[in-house]
Amino acid sequence: MTNMDHGKFTRVTTYFHSLLALDVFLLFFTGYSVMFNDELWWMVEFMGGNAGVLALHRIAGFGLIVLTVFWVTLMLIGPGRRKNFKAVLPTPTDAKAFIQDVQFVLGRADERHPNARQFAGYSSDEVPLLSYVGKGVVWIFTVELVLLMISGLLIWSKVGLAQFFQTKAAATAFVTFHGLLGVVMVMGIMFHIFEHGFHPAFYPVEMKAFVPKSMMPHEEHEDHEGTGIELLSLRPTWKWAVNVAGAAVVIGIVSVLVGSIFDSGYPVPAGLTVGGGPTSVLLTIGINVGMFVLLLGVVLSTYGNVLRARYEQQVASDEHDSEPEAAADGGQPRDE
């Protein structure tokens, strides 16, 4: 690790991040099995058929509500959480960073604004924990989850949906809105997987999302000039891996968007009645490639937690080995 690894999360947040990721992935797998039940017939069968898919989707939706309530409560009453909440609020400096980024792209600025720099070889005291892009991702993701939960609950309760929308057309439009949110969100998730799984400095997984910031070994590079990025080496498998993953992300996003045009009514509360057969072999393959990208996200998340557990064991073992041995009589150890 380098002194770029200033850490992202507390220990609680690392666990919450992993649980939320697994729950959202389950929502995607079950939701898209409903929407693309012809193209993803094997996934429907794997999860127990129509009834199994719908039951798992609702269980995952309930899990999302539980996780959200827990997180909101923690942000309100947890120690130091309000300070963290303020850290993700947009600031005038973020607006300046956005404007300067646009100017930089147009060739009218010499460099990016400090509030836009991440993963660029800067030390932790030179850049904020979250750039304006990172803050945007947090807020977009939060708004989408809230809207998905509200719309999902209304769709789940047909009576409740009818109370708000008295016409069939309005209710259908509301259901379609829920599906549209899912399509938009899955695009962001695929980009998120690609960004944090295949960045050359952190491939195959960015450990800052799994190792608590309290365990980041800052002191190891205090005497080293630079940020430590020059100490990193590019893995031999990165070139072909990033090309394959990048192509899969593009194919998956395009296929899901095209498929959502043909298949409407997502999600269907009662049964899997949408769709009329695969539009084409290529579209069927593309949608399955998109699901492969999501599955890759599950694998990377699991791998990150495995590495976190190994790292914690290594730290605990090093601390134990560095402790002075106690005297045989139980007293204080004597200097040799």
Rank of each mutant, 00 (worst) to 15 (best):
L234G: 13
K213Q: 12
P217G: 12
Y122D: 11
D263A: 11
A162N: 10
T30P: 02
L40G: 00
V250F: 06
S280L: 06
M47C: 06
V315I: 11
I155V: 14
F164M: 12
G188P: 02
V242E: 06
H178D: 09
P278E: 15
I193Y: 00
I150G: 04
H6Q: 15
T68W: 08
L19D: 15
V24A: 07
E206M: 13
V34C: 03
F85N: 06
L300A: 08
M187N: 12
G61R: 03
S33C: 04
Y132P: 01
L40W: 00
A328N: 04
K168L: 04
G7V: 14
I193F: 02
E336P: 10
A316L: 08
R81W: 06
V268L: 07
H196F: 13
S124T: 14
G134Q: 01
T273K: 15
Q100H: 04
S322N: 11
H199W: 05
E336L: 14
L40H: 01
L67E: 10
L161Q: 08
G197L: 09
H218G: 05
L283Y: 13
V102K: 06
D110N: 05
D110A: 08
Q163P: 10
E325T: 14
V34Q: 03
L161G: 04
N243F: 13
F292T: 14
V72L: 11
F9L: 12
M149A: 14
R308D: 09
I261S: 10
T2P: 02
I251K: 00
F104G: 04
D318M: 13
V137T: 12
A209R: 09
V127M: 03
R11L: 13
V143M: 01
A247V: 10
Q332V: 13
L145C: 04
L257T: 15
G276Q: 05
N84G: 14
G331H: 10
M35F: 05
L231K: 07
F104R: 10
D38M: 04
G160K: 13
Y15M: 11
T227C: 05
G52F: 02
V34Y: 01
